[in-house]
Simulated assay, not measured.
Amino acid sequence: MNIPPRYTYCVMVTVVLTVIAYFISPTIAVGILVGGLISPLFAMCQPTSQQSVAPVASSTAQTPAKSFSVAAATSAEQDETVIISRADYTGDVKTIYVGNLPYRANEAAIRKLFSEYGLVLSVRLVKDRDTGKRRGYGFVEMPADAADAAIAALNETEYLQRTLKVREANEKKEVLKPEDESSNSAEL
């Protein structure tokens, strides 16, 4: 059995602390000894997050099947991926509108779905302001070339028994505030 070096280090530190604690109180020393030898074993069972995920180039992206399963959506919650924010990305970014989403789909599942076509910078699923429930649509930000590949591949595909509507998002329109409208009418 391979014993990792960090467990050996934990055992040495535990023995030193136990000897010091023995002079203060033997009960505390026993607690430190048991805790110091058992707790590192639980840490060894945890998966390490030292994996790095490189962005997938759009030319090498493969077209997935037209239907996605529930298992693919739930496994997305368990995967660890490196998330790059839009502020850290310096290239051209496109915002993609994703409509007709199943209400049970969450941000992690949508990120996993779109990450097959390239780097996903952000996922925002719109929720109802009063109830907090998802409204069935959202927005995904991706680099421009990866966004085009994702739109072409995912539009009109079935995802969790719903046919997705995927297209480039419209720009936000500036809304005039009521005080702006009154000041414009007074000038005429």
Rank of each mutant, 00 (worst) to 15 (best):
D145H: 02
I151H: 00
F68I: 03
Y103P: 05
E116Y: 09
Y159Q: 03
V19D: 06
I3M: 08
A147P: 04
A57G: 11
V15A: 13
F23W: 09
Y159H: 03
R134I: 07
Q78I: 15
D130S: 11
S85Y: 03
P47L: 00
V126G: 00
V15Q: 07
K177P: 10
G118M: 04
V98G: 03
F139N: 03
L41N: 10
Y7I: 06
D79T: 14
A43C: 09
A153G: 06
Y7H: 04
A105S: 09
F139Y: 05
V19G: 05
T8H: 13
K177W: 12
A149H: 11
L125D: 00
L188F: 12
A87S: 15
I24F: 09
I3H: 10
S75C: 13
G132A: 01
A150M: 04
T163C: 02
A186P: 01
I96D: 00
N184R: 14
E187G: 13
A186L: 10
T131A: 08
S185Y: 15
A73S: 05
K177F: 11
G132W: 05
Y137D: 04
A152K: 11
I84D: 10
P40N: 04
R135A: 02
I32W: 01
I24E: 07
A21E: 07
A147V: 07
P102A: 14
E116T: 07
D79Y: 12
Q62L: 09
G138V: 05
V120P: 03
A149S: 12
V175T: 07
Y89P: 00
R162L: 04
T8V: 13
G138S: 05
A144W: 08
A169C: 02
A73F: 01
Q78M: 10
R104Q: 15
I84C: 12
S122W: 05
A57P: 12
G136L: 06
R135F: 01
S182W: 09
L188Q: 11
T63C: 04
E77N: 14
N170L: 11
I96Q: 02
V82L: 13
L154P: 07
I20Q: 02
S49V: 11
I151W: 06
D145I: 03
T74E: 15
P102W: 03
S58A: 15
A147D: 08
E116H: 07
R86E: 15
Q46G: 11
V34L: 12
R104N: 14
V140A: 06
A87D: 15
G31D: 06
C45G: 14
K127M: 12
